[in-house]
Structures are given as C-alpha cells and as structure tokens.
Simulated scan of single mutants.
Amino acid sequence: MNSATPANDPLRHVGVITKLMDKQFRVPGTGFRFGLDGLIGLIPGAGDVTTFAVSCYLLTIMARNGASGYVMARMVLNVVLDMLIGAIPFVGDLFDFAFKANSRNLRLMQEHYVEGRHRGSAWKVILPVLLVLLLLMIGMVWLIYRVLSSLF
C-alpha cells in the first residue's frame, strides 16, 4: 500500500500542481484541456508574473529532487520561452493555452527518473539559450535606440 501524499512525494506534488496549471479543465466535446496558467495569464502583467512564479516553484522542487543539469536547463528553457512569448498581448495568451511548459517539464522529470534519460551536462542547452538571450538583448537595445532616435 502506498501512503505517499502530494506533500511527501515530490514528483506527485509537482504532478498535482501541473495538472491544475495546465490540464484541469476540458472544453466540452473536445479533447482540448487547459488550466489556470492560461486563465491567470489573461490578466495583463500580474497573470504572467504569477504563472512564472508557480513554474519557478516547480523548478525548485525538481532541482531539489535530483534533476540533472541537462534536465534543469531544458526545463528552464521551457519556462523562459513560456514567459517571453506569454508576455506578448493576445498571441501570448493563445500560446499559454497551447504550450503548457509545466506539463513539458513534468514529462522531462518523469523521463529522467523512470527511463534514466536526459543525463549529462547542461552546457549543450545553456550555451544556445545564452546566445539567443544575448541576441534578444541586442535586438531590444537596437529597437529602443531606433524609437528614441526617431522621437528626438
């Protein structure tokens, strides 16, 4: 008999929160599921911050319970992608309903524990992510420069 509860079984705890955030509700007559992530994300600004905080909490639990550097890098990439695209008005809201970063991360963690996949160094994920972030920062600086130079 398994007496594990979500509070003392980290993977199950993450599963419960992930279901609530990504797949709690179903559109009647379809197989499409969504959760609080998509709904809360509809609140401009505060919704994105709230769902990002929940995703970071889940990442913390997974890191404390033995996720490899490679798995953590992939999970962080999912959360950052969800945050960046989710912050775009309207498009980001649709993306939040479809992408389901927490479910992707839970699947990665289950594969890591159960199948023994995703071991090794995180650098093969981190370096491209850092390069993309650097390019985004350069693009933002360029865009701000162009806007300010056209105004003045």
Rank of each mutant, 00 (worst) to 15 (best):
S103L: 08
H13W: 13
S3K: 15
P28F: 11
G47W: 00
L131Q: 06
G86A: 02
M21G: 10
R74V: 01
I43R: 09
V141I: 13
L134F: 15
L151R: 02
I17T: 04
N78P: 12
V76I: 13
A122P: 01
T5H: 12
S68A: 12
R119L: 11
F25M: 15
G47I: 03
L39W: 15
T51M: 05
S103V: 07
D96W: 08
I43V: 15
M21C: 07
K23Q: 13
N105G: 04
I126R: 05
Q110F: 07
T60E: 02
A101G: 06
V27L: 13
P44L: 08
G45V: 11
L36Y: 03
H13V: 04
G69R: 15
R146C: 07
L135E: 01
M21R: 01
L127M: 04
R74I: 00
E115M: 12
V147H: 06
L81A: 04
D82P: 01
R104P: 00
L59M: 14
H118G: 08
I144V: 15
L11N: 06
M21W: 04
S68R: 10
V16C: 14
L148V: 14
P89L: 13
S3N: 14
G35I: 02
P128W: 02
A101M: 09
V91I: 14
D22C: 07
L136D: 09
E115H: 09
G31R: 13
A7Q: 12
L20E: 08
L20D: 08
L108V: 03
G47K: 08
I43A: 08
F34A: 03
G116D: 05
H13F: 15
M140A: 11
L11K: 01
P6D: 00
V80N: 05
L108K: 00
E111C: 04
K100D: 15
G116K: 06
L133F: 10
R64D: 00
R117W: 11
I17G: 04
N78G: 05
I88W: 02
R64K: 12
S55V: 00
C56P: 00
V54E: 04
T50V: 05
G45Q: 09
V114M: 06
V91P: 10
L148R: 13
M1I: 03
S149P: 05
N105S: 06
I43Y: 02
M109T: 13
N2Y: 15
L108N: 06
L148H: 13
F34N: 02
F99T: 00
P128E: 10
L143K: 14
V49F: 06
R64T: 03
N2K: 14
I85A: 03
V80P: 03
Q110C: 05
G41R: 00
H118N: 10
F52V: 05
L136V: 12
R12K: 05
